[in-house]
Write a protein that binds this DNA or RNA. Structure first.
Lengths: 147, 147
DNA sequence: AGAAATAAGGACATTAATATCTTTATATAT
DNA sequence: ATATATAAAGATATTAATGTCCTTATTTCT
C-alpha cells in the first residue's frame, strides 16, 4: 500500500509531532531508534521531507529535525505525495492508462471505492492527530518488547 | 496496491474467461498480446497460477491455457493470494508487527476501513463477473489505439 | 518415427527499492 | 579559532521485482 520509505516518513513525523511540546530539535539517531528504522535510509527520507518544507531542520550541535509550530498541520496526503507520489491514489487498479469512468477497466468502479476511502483517510487525518492519539496512550509507534 | 505480476495475472484470467465459450486453449503469445504484457514474464505468472490449480494448461500443438469449466468461479482474492500473498491485506498500515485492535498503531482504525473495502472487493468479485462486463462492452482490458 | 508447437523450467539481465558508508557543509560551544 | 555535532550530499551495496533468453519436456500432427 505504502512503500517502506513512506511508512518511515509517517512514523518519523508522528514521533516529531509527539515531542513538539519539548521544544527541542531531534536528531536522526533518536528518530531512527524511536521508530525502529535504518538510520541512513531515514536520513534520505528526512532530506526529502525537509526540501518539501514538510519538516524543518538545523545542522550543528543541538541541531536536528522539528515541525514548525507556526505552520498548518500536516495532512497524511502531503507525506504520501512527497514520498510515494499520487499515482496509485488516482490511477487505475489494473494500471491501464486509458481507464476512466467512461472507459473503465473491469474493476474500475469497485476499485474506485477503495481508493476513495484511502483518499478520505489521507486527506482527513493529520500527523498531529495521530501524534495526539499516541500521547493519549491509544496507540503506539514501535513494538516494545518487555522481558 | 497490486504488483505488476498480480495485475497481469488478473488480466490474463479475465481474458481467458472472456473467451471461455470458444472452447479452445489459448497460448501465451495470444494472452500477452491481448493484455499488452511481456510474454516471458507472463509465462512465469501463468506457471504459478497453473500450479495453484487456478488455471489449466496443456502442452503441444493447439495447447495453451484455459479455465476449467467444471470448477467453481475464481474469486479475485485467490489470484491476489497466489501472486502477491495476503500480507498487505491483513497487515498493519504502517507495517508494525504487534499492531492490533487492542494495541493499535496511529492509523490502525482508519486504515482498517480501507482494507475492509479492499477485502470486500476481492472476496466478492470473480474473474467471470469481470469477463462478463467486458463482453457487455462495459469495460476493457487493453488500451486500443486507433489511427 | 519424426517434426513442430507449446508450456515448464532454469539461468541470466535489468531496474527499482532499500540500505549502508563516506565525505562535505554548517552551526554551536568551548 | 578550533573542535564537535549534526544534517546534506554523494557513492556504493544489497535485495527484490521485473523482464528476457535458452533449454527441456510433452503433446499433436504428419
Amino acid at each position: 500500500m505504502f512503500s517502506k520509505a513512506c511508512k518511515y516518513a509517517i512514523k518519523s513525523l508522528v514521533y516529531l509531532a509527539s515531542r513538539a511540546d519539548e521544544d527541542r530539535k531531534i536528531g536522526l539517531t533518536e528518530i531512527a531508534d524511536a521508530i525502529d528504522s535504518p538510520m541512513h535510509f531515514t536520513a534520505k527520507i528526512m532530506q526529502v521531507l525537509s526540501k518539501q518544507g514538510i519538516v524543518s531542520s538545523a545542522k550543528g550541535p543541538n541541531g536536528g529535525f522539528f515541525i514548525d509550530k507556526t505552520a498548518p498541520d500536516i495532512y497524511l496526503i502531503q507525506v504520501v505525495s512527497a514520498i510515494d507520489g499520487l499515482a496509485h491514489l488516482s490511477g487505475c487498479g489494473l494500471g491501464l492508462k486509458g481507464c476512466s469512468a467512461e472507459h473503465p477497466c473491469p474493476i474500475h468502479d469497485e476499485f474506485s471505492e477503495v481508493r476513495d476511502k484511502l483518499n478520505q483517510l489521507l486527506r482527513g487525518q493529520t500527523i498531529q492527530q495521530l501524534a495526539a492519539e499516541m500521547s493519549d496512550g491509544k496507540s503506539y509507534l514501535k513494538t516494545v518488547i518487555m522481558k
